[in-house]
Computed example of a mutant assay.
Amino acid sequence: MGYLKYTPYIYLIFALYFIYEAIVKWSDPEATPWLSVMIAGLAIFMFFFRRKYAKKMQDRNDQS
């Protein structure tokens, strides 16, 4: 399961995409960039949450 330590970085890729999308939508008066900003914020939160949880599980496995 070595691939699981790389999966949180997918959230960073999503966050970068949605930040880019929000910047592009910001100049269009009919577009709603706030949804993209919220999704990017959620993706960044999930990155840190998954990374912390994975570290906690790794420490638990090292102790046993």
Rank of each mutant, 00 (worst) to 15 (best):
M1E: 11
M1A: 12
M1H: 09
M1F: 11
M1V: 09
M1S: 11
G2K: 06
G2P: 01
G2S: 09
K5G: 01
K5Q: 09
K5S: 12
T7Q: 02
T7V: 10
P8K: 00
P8L: 03
Y9E: 10
I10P: 01
I10D: 00
I10T: 08
Y11M: 13
Y11F: 10
Y11L: 05
L12T: 01
L12M: 08
L12G: 07
L12V: 07
I13W: 01
I13L: 15
I13V: 10
F14L: 12
F14M: 11
F14V: 15
A15R: 06
L16K: 00
L16P: 00
Y17E: 02
F18R: 04
F18N: 13
F18L: 10
F18V: 02
F18G: 00
I19V: 10
I19M: 09
Y20P: 00
Y20T: 07
Y20R: 05
Y20S: 06
A22E: 02
I23P: 00
V24C: 03
V24S: 09
V24H: 01
V24I: 11
V24L: 05
K25H: 03
K25S: 12
W26S: 14
W26A: 15
P29A: 08
P29Q: 07
A31K: 12
A31F: 06
A31H: 05
T32V: 11
T32I: 09
T32C: 01
T32E: 14
P33K: 03
W34A: 09
W34G: 03
W34F: 12
L35F: 02
L35Y: 05
L35C: 00
S36C: 11
S36P: 00
S36Y: 12
V37F: 13
I39M: 10
A40C: 05
A40N: 04
L42D: 04
A43Y: 04
A43L: 02
A43F: 12
A43E: 06
I44F: 04
F48A: 09
F48I: 12
F49T: 07
F49S: 07
R50W: 01
R51D: 11
K52E: 12
Y53F: 07
Y53G: 00
A54Y: 13
K55Y: 04
K56I: 07
K56A: 15
K56P: 02
M57L: 15
M57F: 07
M57E: 15
M57T: 12
Q58D: 14
Q58G: 06
Q58Y: 07
D59L: 15
R60H: 08
R60V: 04
D62I: 14
D62A: 13
D62W: 02
Q63I: 11
Q63A: 15
S64L: 12
